[in-house]
Simulated scan of single mutants.
Amino acid sequence: MTTPPFAPPTTAEIDVVSAQLGRSARGVVGIAARCVCGNPTVVATSPRLPDGSPFPTFYYLTHPAATAAMSTLEATQVMPELASLLDEDEDVSAAYQAAHEAYIADRAHFGDVPEIDGISAGGMPVRVKCLHALAGHALAAGPGVNPIGDAALARSSWSPQRCECEKPGAATA
């Protein structure tokens, strides 16, 4: 097992994430995916927040345009369609199980939290619950790791290859 491929966040990166979220970022251990301009798109969050709360969502989608696109998909009832893939396609189901296991393994590098043992995010490994979490994982892990996250990104109006940051050019250092 290797450590996920990101360095601890800089103060400037935390400032960008906080602005994206409209609140102070909590427990960020790294920037797991970036916009083409360099701004954070997905953060990796400690499995235990600074206040001691367990936090299972290791890969957290922060980019406002990406989160809006996932919200739009959820509002248009795409989740049942994606969930049906788990029942209809054994390969998708197996890949989703593997994505769940990879997610937990990535998070384990940052601590063992018994309260969330075996829990990943987004409904993995048996259902589709949150496209934001699944897209965040797909962006952080790269194409081909999370089939439902990949499918959500493919169906969305947002693309990681196109900058839609509110302040283009305000890339982090």
Results as ranks from 00 to 15, higher is better:
51 D>N: 15
164 E>G: 12
93 S>Q: 14
31 I>P: 06
11 T>M: 08
1 M>F: 15
111 G>R: 01
152 A>D: 02
28 V>N: 01
140 A>H: 03
52 G>R: 04
92 V>L: 05
79 M>Q: 12
13 E>G: 04
121 A>G: 01
29 V>G: 02
143 P>R: 13
82 L>I: 09
139 L>K: 04
112 D>W: 02
57 T>D: 11
169 G>F: 09
142 G>W: 00
93 S>Y: 12
166 E>F: 09
22 G>H: 05
168 P>C: 02
72 T>F: 04
159 S>W: 03
42 V>Q: 04
127 R>D: 13
120 S>Q: 02
116 I>D: 00
155 R>V: 04
153 L>A: 09
137 H>D: 07
19 A>C: 10
7 A>Q: 15
7 A>S: 15
116 I>S: 06
29 V>W: 02
79 M>P: 03
110 F>Y: 14
40 P>K: 10
110 F>C: 00
155 R>Q: 13
97 Q>S: 11
139 L>F: 06
113 V>L: 06
65 A>V: 08
49 L>N: 05
97 Q>D: 11
170 A>R: 11
123 G>F: 02
164 E>A: 13
13 E>Y: 10
33 A>G: 10
76 T>E: 15
115 E>P: 05
171 A>L: 02
13 E>K: 10
32 A>V: 07
59 Y>L: 07
34 R>F: 01
52 G>C: 10
150 D>M: 08
77 Q>C: 14
110 F>K: 02
134 L>F: 08
65 A>L: 05
9 P>Q: 10
161 Q>T: 11
13 E>D: 11
85 L>C: 13
119 I>P: 01
34 R>H: 07
70 M>I: 06
113 V>D: 04
104 I>M: 04
18 S>P: 08
9 P>I: 01
56 P>N: 15
169 G>H: 10
138 A>Y: 04
91 D>K: 12
168 P>H: 07
94 A>W: 08
12 A>P: 09
34 R>G: 00
30 G>M: 09
153 L>N: 01
65 A>G: 12
74 E>G: 01
121 A>K: 03
137 H>G: 06
169 G>R: 04
153 L>P: 00
40 P>V: 14
96 Y>A: 10
157 S>D: 13
72 T>C: 01
27 G>W: 03
94 A>L: 08
160 P>Q: 04
117 D>A: 15
65 A>F: 10
75 A>G: 12
100 H>Q: 05
